[in-house]
C-alpha cells in the first residue's frame, strides 16, 4: 500500500521523504489549498525544488489545489494547476468542478486525484468524476466504515485513498459551513476552518474560555491545559445536556486497521497534518512506514500495535467511522 504523507513546509517534505513516505502532498501558499494557514505551504520555486528532492529519493509529490475557486478569480486556481504541472508534480488533488475540468482539458498527462473535499461517497458520484474528468484516485470521506469502503471498492474501478491518522472531520467534508457561520471564513470559502485570528482565550474566575469569534467553544478549569477551539470539537448544551455534541476532542488513528483497509481494496493510506512540524512528521511517517511494511509482510495485529504505540503523539484517539460505531 502507498503511504501518502503531509508537508506544510519544504523542511517537512524532506523529513517525510527521508522517513519513508511513498508520496507527499502539499499546496501553494494561498487560498487554492485547504490548509491556508499563515507560515505554511510552498512557493512555485519551493515546490519545484521539493519535487526534485522527492523524485531523487523515489517519492512522488501530489499538489492539493482542493478549495473551491472564488467568483471572478477562477484564473488563480487554473494558474495554480499550470504551475503544479510546470513544477513536475505527479498529481493534482482537486474538488471544484471548474478545477477538475481545467486539469482534464488542459493537462491530459497529469494524474488527477479527487479531494476529500468533494465528498464522493457513492459509486454513482465517483463514476461521474472518473468518466467526466478521468480521475485516477478518490480520497474517501472520513464518514465511511471499513465495510462500506469494501462494498464501494467492489463497485468502482478507480484507486481509493483513506485517511489513517491525524485530524478528524465529523462533518461531510466540503459540506460544512460551521466555521464561516461564526467567523466569515471556512474551508470552502477560504481554505481554513476555525481560523486562528478569530481565537481568543479569555480568563475569568471560573478559568479559561476558549472562544471562536466570541462563541465559547470550550472552558477549562484554572491550571487545566487548554485546547484549540475547533468548532465541531467543542462542548455545547442541547436538550438540557452539556456534552461534546458533535465529536469528542479526539484525533483519528486507524493504524490497527491497516490490514482491514488493505483487504477492503484501499490503494493508499493518508496521514493528515500539513500544519505539523518536521519532528512530528518524521515520527509519524516512520511509525506508519514500519507498520505498512509489517502488514505487507504479513505480521499479526499485535506486532502492528507495538510499532505504532512507539509514537509519542498525545491526546485521545479514535478509529472514527471506520469501526461503524457511528451507526
Amino acid at each position: 500500500m502507498e503511504l501518502v504523507c503531509p508537508a506544510g513546509t519544504p523542511a517537512a517534505l524532506r523529513a517525510a521523504v527521508s522517513a519513508g513516505a511513498d508520496a507527499i502532498y502539499c499546496g501553494f501558499r494561498d487560498e487554492t489549498n485547504a490548509r491556508n494557514f499563515p507560515g505554511l505551504n510552498f512557493s512555485a520555486a519551493e515546490l519545484a525544488e521539493g519535487v526534485r528532492f522527492a523524485h531523487a529519493h523515489g517519492a512522488r509529490v501530489l499538489v492539493a489545489i482542493n478549495t473551491f475557486a472564488q467568483t471572478g478569480r477562477v484564473g488563480q486556481w487554473r494558474k495554480a494547476v499550470d504551475e503544479a504541472a510546470g513544477c513536475g508534480a505527479d498529481a493534482v488533488i482537486a474538488a471544484d468542478l471548474a478545477v477538475l475540468d481545467h486539469v482534464a482539458k488542459n493537462h491530459t498527462g497529469l494524474r488527477l486525484h479527487l479531494s476529500v473535499q468533494a465528498a464522493a461517497a457513492t459509486p454513482e458520484a465517483i463514476g461521474f468524476y472518473v468518466e467526466t474528468f478521468g480521475v485516477r484516485r478518490v480520497v474517501l470521506p472520513r464518514i465511511l466504515s471499513v465495510q462500506e469502503i469494501a462494498a464501494l471498492n467492489r463497485s468502482i474501478d478507480v484507486e481509493t485513498e483513506a485517511f489513517v491518522f491525524g485530524g478528524l472531520c465529523v462533518m461531510v467534508e466540503g459540506r460544512c459551513h460551521l466555521s464561516s457561520y461564526a467567523t466569515g471564513r471556512s474551508p470552502n470559502l477560504s481554505g481554513v476552518c476555525s481560523p486562528p485570528e478569530m481565537v481568543s482565550y479569555d480568563e475569568d474566575e471560573e478559568g479559561t474560555a476558549a472562544r471562536l469569534a466570541g462563541f465559547t467553544i470550550d472552558r477549562y478549569a484554572p491550571g487545566q491545559p487548554t485546547g484549540y477551539p475547533t468548532l465541531c470539537k467543542g462542548r455545547f448544551t442541547a436538550g438540557e445536556k452539556t456534552s461534546y455534541l458533535f465529536e469528542d476532542p479526539v484525533s483519528l488513528n486507524a493504524g490497527n486497521l491497516i490490514s482491514s483497509l488493505k483487504a477492503a481494496g484501499v490503494t493508499a493510506l493518508k496521514i493528515e497534518g500539513r500544519q505539523r512540524g518536521k519532528r512530528y512528521v518524521t515520527e509519524v511517517v516512520r511509525a506508519f512506514r514500519k507498520a505498512v511494511d509489517a502488514v505487507e509482510a504479513g505480521s499479526d495485529a499485535g506486532e502492528i500495535d507495538r510499532i505504532l504505540s512507539g509514537m509519542s503523539e498525545g491526546g485521545r484517539q479514535t478509529a472514527g467511522a471506520y469501526r461503524k460505531t457511528w451507526r
Binding site: 464518514i143 461531510v172 458533535f246
Partner: peptide, 8 residues
C-alpha cells in the same frame, strides 16, 4: 450549515 455521517 453542515451534514454528517453521524446522527446528533
Amino acid at each position: 450549515l453542515a451534514l454528517s455521517g453521524r446522527c446528533y
